[in-house]
């Protein structure tokens, strides 16, 4: 009975099971502001730590162990270089994050070396949270957190959505027939 009624996205395909194919998702990009914001935060925090290190090195008040003073410049420059490298990688990774919304499930694809696709059926959602940090608020962004019984370790999160999109998705989920049924 329910099989004939089953639809997920595109109704023109042949069998119901073929409709639910995650290899043919209509992937959407996150907000344009998300990756640059993350990059800025990452670079700033890396530079801040570097600055702290430099201050420790230059300060005249405390006499630190000789070996520490010897290796500090080397370690610090290594840290800064690696840190900035990671910032670049994270930026590319952020740029590649995508999400997809279908009638019955949400998907999030991410990863640089390890490509991941997370899929969350809407019937299994327990509750949703819209999370906005101070910087996200400043840029008009929001993260959508979706909780299932899979536990806190497996919270499905869509980061870097514009506030409008996030609230739109939230409304879609809250009004979803599958969710309404299970309370």
């Amino acid at each position: 009975m329910s099989e004939t009624l089953f639809s997920n996205d595109n109704l023109s395909a042949a069998t119901p099971e073929q409709l639910a194919m995650i290899q043919q998702l209509d992937l959407q990009t996150l907000s344009e502001k998300y990756a640059p914001l993350n990059l800025q935060i990452n670079i700033l925090s890396t530079l801040l730590i570097t600055l702290l290190g430099v201050l420790v090195y230059l300060q005249p008040w405390l006499s630190l162990p000789q070996t520490l003073m010897l290796y500090l410049p080397l370690g610090l420059s290594l840290f800064t270089l690696l840190g900035l490298g990671f910032c670049g990688l994270a930026y590319i990774a952020d740029k590649r994050k995508r999400y997809a919304l279908r009638e019955l499930d949400l998907h999030f694809s991410s990863g640089l070396i390890f490509q991941k696709v997370l899929s969350q059926p809407i019937t299994r959602i327990q509750h949703i949270e819209l999370k906005r940090g101070p910087l996200e608020r400043y840029k008009g962004l929001a993260s959508l957190q979706v909780f299932s019984a899979g536990g806190a370790m497996h919270t499905f999160e869509l980061p870097g959505l514009t506030l409008d999109t996030a609230e739109h998705i939230r409304q879609l989920i809250l009004q979803h027939k599958d969710l309404a049924q299970h309370g």
């Binding site: 329910s2 099989e3 089953f6 997920n8 119901p16 099971e17 409709l19 639910a20 194919m21 995650i22 290899q23 019955l104 499930d105 899929s119 059926p121 809407i122 019937t123 299994r124 019984a149 599958d178 049924q181 299970h182």
Partner: peptide
């Protein structure tokens, strides 16, 4: 792909509560 698609299809079409 087949396994995941199958699972999603079963979850979404069965309407059986998980608990």
């Amino acid at each position: 792909y087949k396994l995941i698609n199958h699972c999603l299809y079963k979850v979404e079409s069965s309407k059986i509560s998980w608990m």
